[in-house]
Design a binder for these strands. Sequence first.
DNA 1: AATAATTTTTAGATTTACCTAAAAATAAAA
DNA 2: TTTTATTTTTAGGTAAATCTAAAAATTATT
Lengths: 220, 220
Amino acid sequence: MQSHTEENYLKTIYHLAEKTVNVQTNAIAEQMQTKPASVTDMIKKLAEKGLIDYVKYQGVTLTETGKNTAIDIVRKHRLWEVFLVDKLNFKWDEVHDVAEELEHIKSIELIERLDEFLGFPKADPHGDPIPDKERRFAKTQFIKLIELKVGDSGTITGVSQHSSPFLKHLEKLGLTLGKQIEVSDVTDFDGSVEIRLSDKQVNISREVAKHILISSNGKN
Amino acid sequence: MQSHTEENYLKTIYHLAEKTVNVQTNAIAEQMQTKPASVTDMIKKLAEKGLIDYVKYQGVTLTETGKNTAIDIVRKHRLWEVFLVDKLNFKWDEVHDVAEELEHIKSIELIERLDEFLGFPKADPHGDPIPDKERRFAKTQFIKLIELKVGDSGTITGVSQHSSPFLKHLEKLGLTLGKQIEVSDVTDFDGSVEIRLSDKQVNISREVAKHILISSNGKN
DNA sequence: AATAATTTTTAGATTTACCTAAAAATAAAA
DNA sequence: TTTTATTTTTAGGTAAATCTAAAAATTATT
Ligand SMILES: [Mn+2]
Ligand SMILES: [Mn+2]
Ligand SMILES: [Mn+2]
Ligand SMILES: [Mn+2]
């Protein structure tokens, strides 16, 4: 049984491990908004418990158990987010902090019944995949909007940035999950992207385009 | 902002205060499954924070703020219990422990929306009243089943014991919330009570009868 | 390869929530 | 009103999770 803190560390390591094999102390510290010294302390404990492999000065990797634990937390986090949006009518930019707490409720039964109640969703309100109870992820094929060429089209199926300002911005532009889009132009001057929606046309900065994920439905 | 522990203490004091004006250290310790010395430590902190009034050796009482905090936790606990039973199909004997964790999730918005989602329930799965967001309880008029005379009838509207074995026992006997009952006999020998239900007749011990709450709908 | 910069760890403290054992206060009984 | 029993508090200590400051190891740069 892990503490909330331990769980948050495992989840952070899990996410960081998507980018680098060995996760470094400083990276964890930054993500967890804490000091490297505190991370070293916690790292030792998690290694002690067999949840991570740790070689001094060489960063950490999750063990099988550690990874499973992390995935379970991710699953809970995302299912609760679906609950908050689908059932309690929260906006997609309002759910993160509450889910951050709810993910630590310890009851397998609870999460299985919640999953069922929600209709076994495959993705959360930000398009992130929800593993099933056997911890299997439905495989997804995303392209960053920024990588599309003029004439390419697809469906918005995710975002790689979860900050409230960013999500509110997208909402205002009408760029929400499930929306069909087509790249109608890319501005030479600043690289901003012109997007055609069913009913309107919007212009977004490169920075925004980087964080919108598209499931391409064929070119042109 | 209070810790989970502080919140649990406040809730415990709130419930104990329904029986005695000044809540004693030992009573709190027993309820919280901890040692009196630990209670004294916590009591000092809560007094320091202005959540309880505390005179050495004389026990404690909740301040206005302390009481409000406690009621908010009770409200959350009971709303989550309704959610678990009504939406996730948990049985009434299975919800307590999970609600014990869920009650600490910190989001006013969450609980207001949950309340609405559940249809602003007035009572939890055990018949305990749920305060509204202004902390007002619907006033309830309960009589213990044990106090009914032969011929008296009423509706089961609550239980004053929440242990799983007790609740399972009632379930098996068909004595669940909302059931119409009539006391058909009281055994001289052991004081056990014979209950007439719409479709059958059951016999319950005095001990059980003490913990069933009836909203009387007139005598005889 | 030596020096400088960065990253990571250790040492030593603090805070929270506990504990046990002993002392002090209060309440009950003789 | 002593004596005894009960309740409560204090004293002193532990474990978890954090911190700052300083030392050590690793990596990058001359
Ligand atoms: Mn969290
Ligand atoms: Mn999400
Ligand atoms: Mn609780
Ligand atoms: Mn209840």
